[in-house]
């Protein structure tokens, strides 16, 4: 079984899995590297370009890891969304007149 799963079925994608945790860890690191790397690159420091490059690489890795799962969740969810909106409106009115 691959470390990072790239093919998802709708029901499996609804669960929280290790791909989500990879995203949770990669994402703040990418932010730090993008911010620090941009500042130091503006000063034309070599370390800045390296850190900025790392930030871009982390961002691409983040997209590669989590995007297939997000696509599956979204496709499945869109089918339900119309019903959910109607249900939500009912809840809103029911709560108000409870």
């Amino acid at each position: 079984m691959a470390l990072i799963r790239r093919e998802w079925k709708a029901k499996e994608a609804d669960e929280w899995t290790r791909e989500d945790w990879f995203a949770i860890i990669l994402s703040p690191l990418a932010y730090v590297a993008l911010m620090v790397g941009t500042a130091l690159s503006m000063l034309l420091l070599p370390a800045g370009f390296i850190i900025l490059g790392a930030g871009i690489a982390l961002t691409l890795l983040l997209v590669w890891v989590i995007n297939p799962k997000l696509s599956t969740i979204s496709t499945e969810y869109e089918k339900k969304q119309k019903d959910y909106i109607q249900q939500l409106e009912k809840i809103t009115e029911w709560e108000a007149t409870e």
């Binding site: 990418a30 932010y31 993008l34 911010m35 620090v36 790397g37 941009t38 500042a39 503006m42 000063l43 961002t59």
Partner: peptide, 14 residues
Amino acid sequence: GTALVLMRNAVWGV
């Protein structure tokens, strides 16, 4: 949107 905000702050910082 937030990544852009953080990078913009870095540009301002310099």
